[in-house]
Design a protein around this nucleic acid. Structure first.
Lengths: 116, 116
DNA sequence: GACAAATATTCCTATATAGGTATACAATTG
DNA sequence: CAATTGTATACCTATATAGGAATATTTGTC
């Protein structure tokens, strides 16, 4: 059985790091394919292929400008990812809290042992 | 060329929705495999397979308790996902900001038309 | 109109996998 | 000790893909 298609949802689309890179660049503003090609140092066909995936999950939109195709980010498509992962933030934030407590206790111990 | 392995990183591991579900359940606390099997209504071998992936990306930790294996969440492993997607929050938050402005203007208009 | 630029798409391939089925192994129970 | 429980894993299969190489199509320039 195959994995879910890369175009199945945003999670699958952005699992591929190059596609995340493309989104990162587009976060800075609308771009033609050529810009992405140059900026990412990837071959043009590759970039087009990745853009197609991103387009199909709705993460980018495209408009024609003559022979150029300008792509822009649709960040809303990434919201499901954020919505899912944000609930896990407490698992590393609390960790920091616990670490602070432990460090505080260690500090007290050191002060308590300061006499040795 | 194959896609990156599901065990390549957290992004690839959680692209599969069942694995996200597993993490969601474990977010509620340490669990034996059997609990996950029953709670998710998945066959046991499937659950074990998914758990192995999650274990390899570090998203879960396991300890033996007799013949039972208890799995617990390591939420830190999901931080890279959060770190990446959080910068995109502005792309839907600003949208909400704009919507608020529009709604505010509509409200003012309605209040202005309140005399009719 | 010839040529170049920009880009999408086709063809190909080796690779990994999600689920199904069956099995192996260890621990527990009676 | 036999039977049961709990779980990991092996074997199998159909499927999708990331990149490479090549190509097709459209638009722009001179």
């Amino acid at each position: 059985m195959a994995r879910a298609a890369t175009t199945a949802d945003a999670f699958n689309a952005v699992a591929e790091p190059r596609r995340r890179q493309i989104l990162d660049v587009l976060a800075g503003g609308e771009r033609p394919v050529n810009d992405l090609v140059r900026q990412l140092g990837l071959p043009q066909p590759q970039v087009s292929k990745h853009l197609r995936v991103l387009r199909e999950v709705g993460a980018v939109d495209v408009r024609d400008e003559g022979r150029r195709r300008l792509y822009r980010l649709n960040g809303r498509a990434l919201k499901p990812i954020h919505d899912w992962v944000k609930d896990y933030e407490r698992f590393w934030s609390e960790r920091f809290d616990e670490l602070d407590v432990v460090l505080e206790e260690l500090k007290r111990k050191e002060e308590g042992d300061g006499s040795e």
